[in-house]
Design a protein around this nucleic acid. Sequence first.
DNA 1: CTGAAAGCGCTTACAG
DNA 2: CTGAAAGCGCTTACAG
Lengths: 332, 332
Amino acid sequence: MVTLSDIAKEVGVAPQVVSRVLNGGKGTASARAQVRDQIREVAARRGYRPFAAGQILRARAFHSVGVLIGHAQDFLISQDALAGLASGLSRHNYTATLHYVEATTDAELLDSRLLSSRLTDAIIMPYVRPPSRVLLRALRALPVPVIWMNRQARTDALAMDELGAGKMLARHLCEQGYRNITFVDYSSGGRDQHTRERMKGVSAAVRDRGLNVTFVTEQIARPDRATAARALLRPSLRRGAVIVNSLSAAQVILQVAQSLNWRIPEDLAIASFDDGRHHSASVPAITCAIRPEFQFGEIAAELILKRLQDPARPQPSRRLSFNLVVGGSTKR
Amino acid sequence: MVTLSDIAKEVGVAPQVVSRVLNGGKGTASARAQVRDQIREVAARRGYRPFAAGQILRARAFHSVGVLIGHAQDFLISQDALAGLASGLSRHNYTATLHYVEATTDAELLDSRLLSSRLTDAIIMPYVRPPSRVLLRALRALPVPVIWMNRQARTDALAMDELGAGKMLARHLCEQGYRNITFVDYSSGGRDQHTRERMKGVSAAVRDRGLNVTFVTEQIARPDRATAARALLRPSLRRGAVIVNSLSAAQVILQVAQSLNWRIPEDLAIASFDDGRHHSASVPAITCAIRPEFQFGEIAAELILKRLQDPARPQPSRRLSFNLVVGGSTKR
DNA sequence: CTGAAAGCGCTTACAG
DNA sequence: CTGAAAGCGCTTACAG
């Protein structure tokens, strides 16, 4: 490994001079032009890369943000959200450090190197389970700020506006003239926190128009959903609208509706939620509330960088809206 | 921030003693039992977290692997692959450091902090464009090893066995008795490296059985694919099989086939490629060659950790097989 | 402008 | 067993 001293020795100056010359800024002129050029030449020729640990130790800052991840059912951060996070951080020359934990008891989480050592300037928790008090207290005691993703809290948290998404879809369907609206959840049986929020939003929007909504919430495994959908699409549902909690279930309902020769959206309007990658794969495309994943990550970066600028003060939480993308129809 | 010295002062010993006691191993007994307990008590009470920069500087190793990412069309690493990577690394107490680069000229790539500083022990390039010679030379000159993902090379690279996946699907369809096999690519017009590999594999497997394959390769935007699929499914294709290069296109073809009342798979067998998350969302599920994404990341971790154990020697490249998952039928 | 000291936090190799 | 020195690579605050 080539160090500052190696270069300094070769050029015949003190290491500090090399540091000042290579880092630009003030003090660049701390050597004659000829020496400066020589330093730059030697550094380039020998492929000098500053060993960041030295800088980190001196600055007492890593310029990196840790992200704790683990089993998919416990930690939720998509590829695009990670890219957005890394992108937002890179604008200030920060990186994101991923650390994986195998299991998820409080003790095991806290035992992870990211939490038991200090190896980043802040920590992001994309944890979807409700954290215990013990965990919250332990995290608050860390020497670095912790930002939550996918969680509702007054400060230091970032979440999608699930309630608003439910409202948005319901409003859209009402405006299209549908009076008969059904909310379908085959994934969690209506128990997930974010599903409950969506249901609340749908209720509120539908009630505002003096209408009612029917909730169909049962946990049904993927292979059995087609059967469930065939049972769902009774004639009474014709000319109605369904809001489906997961896009994959919406796709199944779409296929079943088509097998019944129902026209979309005249005989059945279908709306769902998506990350923006899959809703347009169906024919016709499905109307969706789209999570802007990349932007979600970017805003997490913004929040955490602000938090780091003013380490003493928790930042107000942020909530990000879904975008409405209207789908197609079976007309040709 | 609480340091070793802070604890040492409070207990009344030298910082080295604290280090030895907290790190266990030999030398733990470097203090009387009573002092040891006191050190542990004070460290816990004051929430001591070793500042990793000190350890890194001393060990001259970060115990972290850098991953360069950027625009989705240039860098390919899925959420599950990242999780697998982080998981494989965590078993040896390594982390993954993500760095995002905005643009993708050679100069801009090399200018990224991950490449222009030394802030990880190795670098992973999930870069899908063919790298220029300049870039390859510059990366070879780095003071850390570089491992490629999604690239074919003799050493230090990890790729999916796309050729084998093509063979696997074609063989499966032949075994099911299909004589009329069509390969469809609406995404890249048959130009992507991995698509060409898949086509080669399909060709080879079909030729082995004395059969022929038809290639339909046109770049068609998503909204136009239903029309293209209707043109594709001429009566002559009935009782044949299609291998579709992307799952989303396969879903469209499935829907069009169903709208023609073709039975799956008797009238049309459909096979495609997937990451394991989406093939079972269609009804019926689509037969797929599945990329084991998590395992892909785990093997990348294995490869890079081996490479770091023996820094002088490049590691032989690894190639990972797809898994076959057979889909369903329209029978009820 | 220019040079040399001091110190960030940590751990190992060494001396007692 | 126990203690104190030395040094990893870097940069800033200070003295000349």
